[in-house]
Design a protein around this nucleic acid. Structure first.
Lengths: 148, 148
DNA sequence: ACACTAAATTATAAGAATTACAATGTAATA
DNA sequence: TATTACATTGTAATTCTTATAATTTAGTGT
């Protein structure tokens, strides 16, 4: 199913004038198979085995292309660098304040909030963003350890 | 009422070992009275009349202190610099994709989502973040102008 | 298969936001 | 008023991201 989504993405890119290079394909592939919401640099490092000469700029360029094509979403948290996530349906993220882990979490889209906001503010609503913050199970249990 | 909230913030800071300097107070004051969700640099520029020798580092240092004290919230969007907002109750933001304007928008907190996430993921939930994106009334009307 | 052209990649430099650091200054306390 | 720990200042360093120019290459038509 990863492959199916990947195929779909590649085809939707080809429909516009976006060429399919090996680097570009590898970045896409990585984004679709990983579950880790990587940073640009993590993508770069993950692929330097396969593409020893690839430039970081290539990663950034492609992430921009993918974003513009609606294939990939940029996640900006408090920390310095953005993370990137291939877009899937209706899931949100819950993030650990202590260790930074990001876990997917399914929930129907908050259409109601969008509609209400539209009426109240007279904006034309396009999208929304929601995240939940807390402490993950691992960090919770570490905290509970009694230090003697 | 701005003054009341400011007072309260100052006092809660003094309770810990945070000293009240003129610069710190001015930054707090500015954050509580402005409606504009300023960047660190905007705060710096806004106060350079009063404090010609203030360093940008001071602004950043204090914003970190305020964040740690739970008085101020950092908003990170896709663009390069963070914005800062004094924490108030139960309001969210709707942001214009075209001009960047941020408008407050009241809505009861999404407690239900927090509760559900807690059960599903076994995180200990602390907070959440939600924003809505779209096009503001001004940008909408500009778009509709017919160019002859 | 070959050539053409627009787009992509690479390498590097530049830019911008934020943080680190050392020296100096100052708020809170006794 | 003296003391001390915290704050500020100025600057340098760091980090993330973007811009640029030269080179390479994917996709297309012949």
């Amino acid at each position: 199913m990863t492959n199916e989504r990947l195929q779909h993405a590649v085809e939707s890119l080809k429909k516009t004038k976006v060429r399919m290079t090996p680097q570009r394909h590898a970045i896409l592939e990585f984004l679709f198979e990983t579950m880790t919401h990587p940073t640009a640099d993590e993508i770069y490092k993950a692929l330097e085995g396969k593409f020893p000469n690839m430039s970081v700029a290539t990663v950034y360029n492609n992430l921009r292309v993918f974003k513009e094509a609606g294939i990939v979403k940029e996640l900006t948290y408090g920390d310095s660098s953005s993370r990137f996530d291939s877009i899937t349906n209706n899931h949100y993220h819950i993030i650990c304040n202590d260790c930074g882990k990001i876990v997917d979490f399914h929930y129907p889209a908050l259409d109601e909030v969008e509609t209400l906001a539209e009426h109240v503010t007279n904006f034309e609503v396009k999208s929304h963003r929601m995240e939940i913050y807390g402490k993950c199970p691992q960090c919770r249990s570490e905290q509970n350890v009694v230090h003697s």
